[in-house]
């Protein structure tokens, strides 16, 4: 099993890229063994979706982690996890989830990929993010998306 988990708030402009990519991927015929999840605001509650899977790709809005002119990027999971320098709180998001993951899962830790979407996003940006997510998942049929080195 491999999973794409889309994060964000569909009702909050600027944080709604993940849910929109979820909608695009849900309309596609996905390869066998690939599951797409609307992770929404699940935060630490998403830990269970990291168990029993070999690879997980997150899709999320990002600010300040990519070059200013980039729109769809890959992010280094270790760099994102390192942002969780403080304790758990109501804003604990992907950084806390990634940092906690190897410490508390009951199954082997999956490998992680992250697609970040920065700034305004039209249909083209979202389509490229969806394609990049599938490619990061290891789907060779996915065409290459725009990305920057992590």
């Amino acid at each position: 099993m491999r999973r794409i988990i889309c994060l964000g708030n569909a009702l909050f402009e600027g944080d709604d890229a993940g849910p929109k990519v979820f909608a695009l991927l849900s309309a596609r015929a996905l390869p066998e063994g690939v599951e797409v999840i609307d992770g929404g605001l699940g935060g630490l509650g998403l830990l269970r979706f990291l168990e029993g899977t070999e690879r997980v790709v997150f899709v999320d809005s990002t600010v300040g982690l990519a070059p200013p002119d980039a729109d769809v990027v890959t992010l280094d999971p270790a760099r994102v996890a390192a942002l969780a320098s403080s304790g758990f709180d109501h804003a604990a998001g992907l950084p806390y989830l990634l940092k906690a993951m190897p410490l508390v899962l009951d199954t082997p830790t999956p490998s992680i990929g992250i697609v970040g979407i920065q700034g305004a996003h039209g249909r083209d940006v979202l389509e490229r993010a969806a394609t990049l997510a599938l490619r990061l998942l290891g789907e060779p049929s996915a065409t290459r998306g725009t990305e920057v080195p992590s």
């Binding site: 630490l44 906690a100 410490l103 508390v104």
Partner: peptide
């Protein structure tokens, strides 16, 4: 955070209940 015995125990134990 991420190291305390109770903190880790809580993370492990609480992740299933919303199932």
């Amino acid at each position: 955070p991420f190291a305390g015995s109770s903190a880790l125990g809580t993370l492990r134990a609480s992740k299933r209940i919303l199932e």
